[in-house]
Design a protein around this nucleic acid. Structure first.
Lengths: 230, 230
DNA sequence: ACAAACTTTGGACGCCGTACAGCAACGGTG
DNA sequence: CACCGTTGCTGTACGGCGTCCAAAGTTTGT
């Protein structure tokens, strides 16, 4: 009946049955309308999915990160963590976001916020733009790796479960052909964990801090537990 | 007739017409057989695409990066650049790689190589595993951003052209609502450039270098032209 | 009350992935 | 050489897909 109901239905189907379930016909059935009624509100299926992606990105609460009291690194981390939660909440929809261009109003607003954040950090406009892009690449890359291989429906299993499953898979790696992989299997199994996400984020922020004026952050060199070198 | 011919045909169609063109029926027609003949060699369409992804990843030449004479940072950069070229050469196939799990032999070999590289850099096994994952996230994230929105066929336009097109789009950004975005539009237009790719890569490697023993690399703080802060 | 505008539907078209049964070529065994 | 089991391929069919068209229904303005 309205665009909103169509998007609601699409997201519901996407969550329950993955990308394959979000067909025009099923969406229409979910709304309770004939398939072609959808075309009254959207020119084609792609437009529905684009609008949905836009809505999901719009669900990120920006104002939280505007608090100038906090150190910029903290604020970027908070933003990155919130983005990850928002995206992984709808695994079936991740493909829409990583696969399409990010040029909607929500993307722009998000980007503007990020630019402000990096400007606060002391980066010039150009460096801030590059840093923002780098951060988005990291967030989207991480999330898409995280939900990769989820074709069916349902929410993502809890982190602990996924890590355990991955550990089981990796325990089968032949240590003669891939000795390093086999040796680091336990750490690798944690790739899709919040810990690894934050670890990578901190490495990136450390790399960016060198551009910012002098200060080198709250946590010297290692921000994650397993970061020690021999 | 053979699996190889099927994969050849699939890649050809993918290159020419994007993901939508790589249907089982079209692949079969390209090979010159009936559609269902494909199922003699692959259990379903997904298996074809998985095999194709595996083959593409296998096309990355590893031995180049084994040269211990070079500094590890140079070798990682070379690997990242080669990976980007390999992936962007087939825009329609990028979705297969970022959308599915990376657990084939080629992925494992690549990962093993990366672990070795970071071990050479002085990172412990666990940090090396985390760094490898971070790098892969960056590469795949960058590439998928780069080919995002390419639904049709044909190769990616030359970099310069894409940047110019993006610049034109961004020039329409209303500077009252998104002042920072509008101000940095020219830099943002270069997001999908090799320069930006290397810039981000260097930030990440800088962040990782802090973990490696003491040395801080060949290029102090800024590795890209526009990196200066006011 | 009537006309105009908008919304929804029934039906159809061509394409998709895939299952099943049958046909053609072939290698090994008598 | 004749036989036969295995393997590769085809013909055909089913249900689902995105989308178009003309017709029917509904709402709105006057």
């Amino acid at each position: 009946m309205t665009e909103a109901k169509i998007l609601d239905a699409a997201l519901r189907l996407l969550d329950q049955g993955g990308p394959a379930a979000a067909s025009v016909r099923r969406i229409a059935a979910e709304v309770g309308v004939a398939p072609n009624a959808i075309y009254t509100y959207f020119p084609d299926k792609a437009a529905v999915l684009r609008a949905l992606a836009e809505r999901l990105l719009g669900g990120v609460d920006h104002d939280v990160f505007a608090d100038l009291e906090q150190h910029w690194r903290i604020r970027v981390e908070a933003l990155a963590l919130e983005l990850r939660v928002t995206l992984t909440a709808h695994p079936g929809a991740v493909g829409l976001l990583v696969g399409g261009p990010l040029d909607g109003p929500s993307s722009m607003a998000l980007n503007e916020r990020l630019l402000q954040l990096f400007a606060d950090a002391g980066l010039g406009p150009d460096a801030a733009a590059q840093a923002s892009y780098l951060l988005m690449v990291y967030v989207f890359g991480s999330v898409s790796r995280e939900v990769a291989g989820v074709h069916g429906g349902g929410p993502l299993p809890p982190e602990q479960e996924r890590v355990a499953a991955r550990r089981a898979e990796l325990s089968a790696v032949p240590s003669d052909r891939f000795p390093l992989t086999a040796a680091a299997a336990v750490t690798m199994a944690g790739s899709t964990s919040t810990e690894q996400y934050v670890w990578g984020l901190r490495r990136i922020l450390a790399g960016l801090s060198a551009l910012s004026d002098g200060d080198d952050g709250p946590d010297g060199v290692d921000g994650a537990p397993e970061a020690a070198a021999p």
